[in-house]
Structures are given as C-alpha cells and as structure tokens.
C-alpha cells in the first residue's frame, strides 16, 4: 500500500482508513485493467454521450449494485481524493456505505458525506441538490446504458441508429405517451440529447435532476458494469431533455415542502409513518437536508393529520382484528 499524501480538503473529512486491506492493488483493480478503463473514459469525454465498450471485470459485488460505477471510480480515484457515495440521494444506505468502505479499505482514501467536501462522488440514481463545482467528478452507476434498448433489443441495430443519428423511434415513443396519456409519462431515466448529437440515458435519476446535467461545471462519468459501457458528459456541455414544442419538458413538483428542513426546492421522498395513512415528505438528498437543518431551517414535521384531512373513515384504517 502506497503512502497516503495529505490533502487540504481532508480537514473535516473522515481520515483515511488506517485498516486498509493489504494484498490488493491500490483501488482493487490491476493496472492493465485501469489503463483500459482510463482509455475508455478519455474516449468517452472526447465523444460526449457515446457509449464506449470496455472490458468490464468481475467485482466483489453483484451486477446491479454498481459494478460499473465502482470500476470507473477505481480507475479515476487517487490518494488525494475525498470520496462521497450516495444511493437514491442518501449517504447511509447499504449500497452507499459499502462502496465507501470498499474504497476506504482498498485505496485508503478519505470519505465524506458532505457534497462540498468531496472530489469524487459516486451516485446511484440522484444528482446532489448542492450545485457541483469544477473540482468535482460525478460517477453514475448505470444499469441500462442504451436509451434505445426498450425500443430496439438488437445491439447491432441500436449501434447503427446512433451512428446514423436516427432517433425517430425515440420521438415516436414519447409521442405515443402524449397520445395515450396527454403527457410524457417517463419520470426517471428520461432520455437526453448531449451536445446536439447523441441521445443518452442519464441513468435512472428522476427527471427532476435532468436540468442539473445541462452545462454542469463538474465532469460527469457513467459506468455500466453488466452492459460493459462507459460514457461521459464533459463540463459545460449542453444536455437537453427530449421534448416537443407543444409539450415542453417539465420536472416534478410537490405541494409539500420537506418535513424535516422545510426545503421547497429539493426532490422529496414520501415516507409512510404509521398504518393509519400518516405520511411525510422528506428530502431524498440526506446531506442537503442535514446541512439545511444545521443552518437552522426547520420543516413542519410532516402532516400527522393527513388521514383525517383526507377523510379516510376510521374503520378502514384500523386493523381488522379488534372487532
């Protein structure tokens, strides 16, 4: 294990794991694999939105748990980096905790839950609410990198469609939504066009996050382990969500604000609080919510009278056994 060099950003971050695993190369992957992934990343950056094939490796976790993101992070990360990992916006879920500890052990890097302290952020299905900066790299875990896959199952065909910039089928599919439901019903993994050329899957982030990708100062890298694809969006690159002139792209909105921090501008998760219909809406981005609460913001604690207000009769919400 190489010596770890101190970095100013570590001041408030968790110190590097001194119990780093021995017997592995730095950041787990062997050097030849890293070179191959690094070359793929560079091509991805040079061809924004194009899915570069790469020789995805077996990782010590199953496909679908972020093998693509982990391989990209392993190829990019260095001892000076501070890593943050989020899963659906939260730093404290199983997937996020384990990936963070994986790199703390195999690379000895500092980790953090704070968006502003991180230099590399690996994410499953959210973009942090706090705007990212030029000094950060956002690594997405991607299950299905091919936006056209549900329309055309053959790889040879979708590759041709991308080569010829033939995206009619995608527009027809969005139009069918409008014809059937009056609006485009895709709410996550909403297709985007990158730099006016490639249609790209933004990974299953809510469409709420799509506008954040547009001209983002941070570099965005995407890794799909099972599907063996890497792609990228360079900083300050145009990312446009597909839409129609008469049906422009819109994002989700809520009547509520966050029950914990009162934020009215963040993506909210619905949390069921009892078996009587009680529920609350809280920020999906746990760090954003915490920073706001630390700054003194407070929510209304949730709507405990939700059931009453919506006039759900008592006998329908109580468990049936007490009669």
């Amino acid at each position: 294990m190489a010596d770890v060099i101190d970095h100013p950003s570590r001041a408030a971050a968790t110190p590097p794991d001194t119990r780093a695993a021995t017997g592995y190369n730095f950041a787990y992957l062997d050097e030849q694999t890293k070179r191959m992934i690094r070359r793929a990343i560079l091509k991805g950056v040079a061809i924004p939105g194009y899915q570069v094939p790469f020789g995805s490796r077996e990782m010590p976790l199953p496909y679908g748990w972020g093998t693509g993101g982990i391989q990209v992070t392993a190829a990019v990360i260095g001892p000076d980096d501070t890593l943050k990992v989020i899963d659906q916006g939260a730093d404290d879920t199983t997937n996020a905790v384990n990936i963070r500890s994986f790199f703390a052990k195999t690379a000895g890097v500092a980790t953090t839950e704070r968006t502003t302290e991180a230099s590399v952020i690996q994410t499953r299905h959210r973009i942090p609410e706090t705007p990212l900066t030029e000094d950060q790299i956002l690594v997405y875990q991607v299950p299905i990198p091919e936006p056209l896959r549900w329309l055309e199952p053959r790889e040879a065909e979708t590759r041709k469609m991308h080569a010829l910039e033939e995206y009619g089928a995608m527009h027809v599919s969005l139009y069918e939504d409008i014809a059937r439901y009056g609006r485009i019903i895709k709410s996550y993994n909403y297709p985007v066009k990158v730099n006016d050329r490639y249609v790209m899957a933004p990974s299953p982030i809510p469409k709420f996050d799509n506008p954040k990708m547009d001209r983002m100062p941070a570099l965005q890298l995407f890794g799909a382990g099972r599907e063996k694809r890497i792609y990228a969006v360079p900083p300050y690159t145009k990312v446009k969500s597909l839409d129609f002139e008469d049906h422009p792209f819109t994002v989700e909105s809520w009547e509520q604000s966050c029950a914990l921090c009162g934020a009215g501008d963040s993506y909210l998760d619905e949390v069921v609080t009892d078996d009587k219909g009680g529920k609350m809406f809280v920020c999906s981005d746990s760090d954003y919510c915490e920073q706001r609460r630390d700054a003194g913001h407070q929510g209304d604690g949730g709507d405990s009278n939700y059931a009453t207000r919506n006039e759900i009769p008592e006998n329908e919400t109580s468990s049936g056994d007490d009669r």
Partner: peptide, 20 residues
C-alpha cells in the same frame, strides 16, 4: 518511481486536460 500512483496522477491530468 511509483508506477501505480504516478500513472493515476498522470491519467487525472490527461482526463482534466481532455475534459477542459
């Protein structure tokens, strides 16, 4: 001098150069 960490540092320089 250190093939692993020096490669990483040089790659990051090239990555940032290519991205910006």
């Amino acid at each position: 001098h250190d093939p692993v960490l020096d490669s990483q540092a040089v790659f990051r320089a090239v990555l940032d150069a290519m991205a910006r």
